[in-house]
């Protein structure tokens, strides 16, 4: 039964990757990557029990931490680059969804 759950989570990760490739905006991609990350945590936890290697759980927690900080960093980067872009071209109308 754990194997079924692991396959379900893997399929979800594939769906998240599809959404990350499709976009269309940066935020869709960040959303998909965040989803991929949290699902990786679940997958590691389930795999730890399938393989009987419960020390994998430490990796799951480390991955959760890295994923959270990574998403925050990417968001900060996107916002900062937008702010810089806007201050460069203040005469133009505010760009909507221009960054892919």
């Amino acid at each position: 039964m754990l194997l079924v759950a692991a396959i379900g989570i893997l399929v979800t990760m594939a769906l998240a990757l599809t959404r990350a490739l499709l976009g269309p905006s940066v935020y869709d991609r960040v959303l998909a990557v965040n989803m991929f990350g949290t699902k990786t945590v679940l997958l590691i936890a389930v795999m730890a029990f399938i393989m009987g290697r419960t020390d994998f759980l430490d990796l799951a927690l480390a991955y959760a931490l890295i994923n959270f900080i990574g998403v925050m960093a990417v968001l900060w980067f996107v916002q900062e680059s937008r702010r810089r872009q806007r201050s460069q071209s203040t005469s133009e109308a505010p760009a909507e969804n221009t960054i892919e």
Partner: peptide, 17 residues
């Protein structure tokens, strides 16, 4: 419980797509 959880996860993946 684990399988039910993965059903919700899978539905979420479909929803996000």
């Amino acid at each position: 419980l684990v399988v039910a959880g993965s059903v919700f996860v899978l539905a979420g993946g479909i929803g996000a797509l």
